[in-house]
Structures are given as C-alpha cells and as structure tokens.
Amino acid sequence: MSEPANRRGAPKGGLTRRGLFRGVGTATLLGGCVDRTSTTDPGGHAVVDDATAPAELGPDRVPVRFTLNGESVEAAVEPRTTLLDALRLDLDTTGPKLVCDRGSCSACLVLVDGLPRNSCMMLAHDVAGREVTTVEGLSKGDELSALQHAFVRHDALQCGFCTSGMLISCAALLRRRPKGEPLTATQVQDAIAGNLCRCGTYPHVVAAVLEVASGKTERAGA
C-alpha cells in the first residue's frame, strides 16, 4: 500500500491557497478582483473578447489566436481539433508528443498560463487568448535552459520520447517553487507522477531537477 506523499510545503501552483477561500461577505469585492488567468480558474478555457455575448464556433474551421512560446499565433482549426494536433500539424511545433492521446502518459504536456496541461485532452479553441509554452519555449533560441543542461549532464533521457513532457512538468515545478525553498526528491517525484517513461529514466530526472534547484549547477556545457 503506498504511503501518501507528504505534501506539506510542496510548491503551490500559480494559486495562493489563502486567496482561494473568501468570506461570502466579500463576494461583491471579489467580483472586482478576479484574475481569471491563474488564481480562480486554472482549469479555465478560452479568453474571448466579448465574454458577455453568446458565441458559436464551427463545426468548420475557425481562427483561434493565442500566445505560443512568447509569440502571437493564429490557426484556423475545427472545434474538434485538439490543442496537440493544432500545435503539431498547424503550427509546426512538434515538441509535444502524441502518444496515448488520452491524457495517460503526459508526453503531450504544455504549460497553459504556467500550469502543466495535457494538450491531447484540450481543444485548440480552449487556449484562445492564453499563453501556451511548449518544450520549444523553455530554451532561448539555441541556448538550452539550466534544466535542459542538467538533463543532458545527468543522462535523464534514453529514447527521449517522454522528455519534452518531463521537462514541462519539471519546469513548472521549478517556476512555482517559492524562492529559496529547497526541493525534495518526493516533490519532484510528485511533479512527474503523470509522465510515463518506458525506459525507466526517472531517477536521473529527479537528480537533474534537484541539481538545478540546489543552485549548485556546474557550468552548462562543462
């Protein structure tokens, strides 16, 4: 029987826990301070220009605009197109991998407004107006991030098919971590709990993330 992982002190998403609970008496106040992108609707969908007007999209191709790795993009896709398919087939962004197509393996993970999401289980139109980051967006051009260098140093990939999803999970964990708080192996394991690696390279992934978190990273390329 598995021991429930200790979540005390785990990094807390893009949400502040105390911000989640609000007295009913402040409901009107609340109305004015909803930050829909991360605090109150992390599972949320499209941000549309006029949310007060009813809208029908499709079933034919309809343009969807969002920010992909820092750049504004547009694709004309049917409502049934998953975000993963739009990224790979329409936007030539093939870092996220199509594997199970059922949200079971996390090879398709991307960050949507900073949170890891399975792009195979979302529709492309769900990210209208939102920020999507794929593994391509973790590096600056050809310069890999510290996390990616650590993956290389620790041999944290074998066949590599899960790697883009692993990197997204780990990048989200590192970004959410309160400054100065050390990470534990359990926290890394929890963060990559959805990433299926058939090669079994998990220990090297954990080692790579812990090294980056410790700040004692050897110089990249060394």
Partner: peptide
C-alpha cells in the same frame, strides 16, 4: 472525434 460546434453562452 466527430465534428461539433462549441457553444459559449454566458
């Protein structure tokens, strides 16, 4: 998936 319409009603 089949074709469908996304309906956003506030």
């Amino acid at each position: 998936m089949n074709r469908f319409t996304i309906v956003r009603i506030p």
